[in-house]
Simulated assay, not measured.
Amino acid sequence: MPTMLEMALSYQQHGFAVYPLAPGTRTPLKGSHGYKDATTDPKQAEAWWGEHPDYNIGLGLDGMLVFDIDMGHKSAADGNESLAKLSADGRAGQIPSTYIETTPNGGLHMFFTYPKNIKLTSRADLFSKSGEKTGLDYTALGVPVFPSIRENGMYQPLKGHKITKLSPAPQWLLTEIQRVNHPNPNLGSAAYTGKRWSGRLLDEMVAGTGNGNRNDFLTRIAGKLFFTGADPVTVYNLLFTTNDSYLDSPLPEAEVNKIFKSVLKAEERRRAVG
């Protein structure tokens, strides 16, 4: 088994930029800029992993996207089942042979190239019609890669697949990604007239925030979600969706749980007095 440093240098030698993740997690180091720190400089890799050999490896996805098929996710969504239904309905086509890694939760990360004239970021629950969880996500920012390890397992490449041999993303996937990134492009400004408080809240969630005030941002979002009268389970799921999909560097799961519990206690006190 190669060391983290050996693999980080190997990725760089093949032209890929890497950045460190906190040990045993998919989370960027505290105070870092996550995928924005990704570099092909071997001296920087030696500084990171030479001093901290237990850092996980993040891969900067410049010109690449990862189609994430979730299994065993906290939302209980079954990505394989969703993809099978989409194929049966004619909404998803064939998946070309490309580099694939299995994730610690038993899911799949499929790596593709895409045209650089398209601007992509990340999004959870592709192909969702009514807000349901599909377990089909994508990111074009950064992602943990082999041999990164989490408490429930390691990111592992499928046999016979090499990261140097990536296929272009299938058109049906790019079409869906562009649909959710730029919904209803022909509606014009009329679509935004009379925006209500809940609409502004949703815009705020999707806009996200920088690394400097992630805790305050998620605390504020949780409070506003509770103010809508939403059930705690709904607030919990939306808080994680905001953290995982709309922050450049998501907070660790334990930190988001801590924020949720704190705001929940405050909300319980408020409702008791009311």
Rank of each mutant, 00 (worst) to 15 (best):
G58N: 05
S148V: 07
I100R: 13
G107P: 07
G194I: 05
I149W: 01
K165A: 12
M64R: 00
D62C: 00
L83W: 07
Y114M: 01
T113A: 07
M71Y: 13
S122T: 10
M110P: 00
L59I: 02
E101I: 03
G194F: 09
S97F: 09
R91H: 06
V180P: 06
S148D: 09
H161V: 07
D125T: 09
G63W: 05
Y138H: 13
V143M: 14
P183T: 08
S97H: 12
P157S: 13
Q178C: 08
F127P: 04
G60T: 05
E81S: 15
R123Q: 14
T102K: 08
G90N: 06
I57Y: 00
L108E: 15
K159G: 06
A191R: 14
S97Q: 12
W172A: 02
L141E: 08
T113R: 09
L174I: 03
G131L: 12
F127K: 08
G106L: 06
K133W: 14
K119I: 10
W172V: 00
S167G: 07
G93N: 11
L158R: 09
G58I: 01
D70V: 04
Y55W: 07
T134Y: 02
L108Y: 11
F112C: 01
S130D: 15
F127L: 09
A77E: 03
P96N: 02
H161A: 12
H109A: 04
N184R: 15
P170K: 04
K133Q: 14
R150T: 15
A124N: 13
H161T: 11
I57F: 03
K129T: 13
L174Y: 10
S189P: 12
F111C: 03
T175H: 12
G79Q: 01
D125G: 07
Y114K: 06
V180W: 04
P168K: 08
G135N: 11
K162I: 10
G131H: 12
N181I: 06
A124T: 11
G131I: 13
E151R: 13
L61R: 04
L65E: 00
E132L: 14
G153S: 01
L86D: 04
L141G: 04
P115T: 11
H182G: 11
L108M: 10
F146L: 05
E176W: 03
L65S: 09
R91E: 08
G194Q: 07
D70I: 00
V66F: 00
G142Y: 02
K162N: 13
A191H: 08
R123H: 14
D125A: 10
H161E: 10
E101F: 06
T175Y: 01
G58T: 01
P115H: 11
D89N: 12
K129E: 15
L174A: 03
A191T: 05
N184C: 13
R123C: 08
Q156P: 00
